[in-house]
Amino acid sequence: MSVLVYVEHSEGKIKKSSFEATTYGKDLSVMLNLPCVAVAIGNISAEELKLLGAYGASKVVHCNSPELSSFSAQSYAGAVASVAAEEKAKVVLLSASFSVKGMAPRVAVKLQAGFADGVISMADVSSGFKVRKGAFSGKAFANISMYSDIKVITISPNSYKILKGEGSAEVVINSYKPGAEENKVKVKETIRATDKISLPEAEIVVSAGRGMKGPENWGMIEDLAASLGAALACSKPVADAGWRPHSEHVGQTGVTISPNLYIAIGISGAIQHLAGVSSSKTIVVINKDPEAPFFKAADFGIVGDALEIVPKLTDAVKRFKAAH
């Protein structure tokens, strides 16, 4: 038996969210007294996969058949379910990325497993098996009891602290091949801005709204984000107006994020906006209106004109980074 962690990678590098999932998997496996095994699919080197050992995986199963070289929810779910059966997984863990959201429910159906998505803390295994997740778009938490023999869980990015130790994992090749009927989705084109920090996984997010007046003022927002190593986000009207791409739009109808630090600049804090960001650990709001609703949801605030404050804040960050 085992705890099985699905490991995602991008351009040959394991994603940070997968190190997080592996750490979670290892801590859970200790409580359940089981080994922690990882599974990776597609083109990635054994050297890279061995790194998972330092995060607690004792073994990495690598499904590398050519039919699995590009992502398809159906074929990847088939591979993970097949490895889960071979490794007699009691729990299958995945980090809730866009792709995983389309694949994990399939794994659960294949294994006839109970499924919980977007889990935000360690499972409680003291009696039964309980997990906790956000619900009602940030307005509540749901505590869920899972009754099935096998459980499939996705964890929300940035919800568990990555712990790196020593060690190197053994990598074994698995020859799972999807059937033709499982590989019908063909990728025609991938458009990726590789220089950008991925928004759902970012630890720090700098976000701006209509208070910035126009796209010509985004240079200072980009500078602040760069100084902090942060990803960029925006409010919905900003994306609707074409000032920023829709992929940066956060909120109820956009991306949901839970970074360690969310800096909201010139955003009023409408309930639909908060729905996507309220689980951020620390929230900073910069707004010229002291009555802006966002201040009620913030930890730190500055009242004033963003166009004046942001460049000064960037300078302060640079001085801080130089000193530390």
Partner: peptide
């Protein structure tokens, strides 16, 4: 078969009141 169920909902702890930092002291925020 029943594989899982919500056994209870709760609401997030309200954030403690915002700490305001004067606009001319961004280094204080950092």
């Amino acid at each position: 078969p029943k594989l899982s169920e919500v056994i209870g909902y709760d609401k997030p702890q309200p954030r403690s009141t915002v700490q305001l930092i004067p606009a001319d002291q961004p280094e204080k925020l950092i």
